[in-house]
């Protein structure tokens, strides 16, 4: 290793220093903020899921009721979908 390379290595070598507590505190604060934002985000998604489920349930039930045919004669998938949606809504409410 020649002298110039040694000079370069010495210039670039990082010196050891104690931890910067201010920086560590900043990171702790950022993580706290990140966790809070993540909770808020997932709460929003849950709310959207519940709103969508409610709308589907109401829509399906209204569609079946408004039809000329009775529930037994209505298209089976539509009855099944409305039942599923109507069951999912209270479960989603419980999860939130």
């Amino acid at each position: 290793m020649d002298e110039k390379f040694c000079d370069l290595a010495a210039l670039l070598r990082d010196t050891q220093r104690p931890a910067d507590e201010a920086f560590v505190n900043d990171i702790e604060w950022l993580i706290e903020l990140d966790i809070a934002l993540e909770r808020r985000r997932s709460a929003t998604y849950r709310r959207w899921a519940v709103d969508l489920g409610s709308a589907c349930a109401i829509g399906c039930v209204a569609f079946v009721l408004a039809g000329d045919a009775s529930a037994t004669q209505a298209a089976p998938p539509m009855v099944l979908a409305s039942l599923l949606a109507a069951t999912a809504v209270p479960i989603l409410w419980l999860l939130t």
Partner: peptide
């Protein structure tokens, strides 16, 4: 565990910042 992560930050921040 945030405390465990703070220990890691304290241990490695100088290296990362220098880089």
């Amino acid at each position: 565990d945030r405390r465990a992560f703070s220990t890691l930050v304290r241990r490695h921040e100088a290296r990362i910042r220098a880089f």
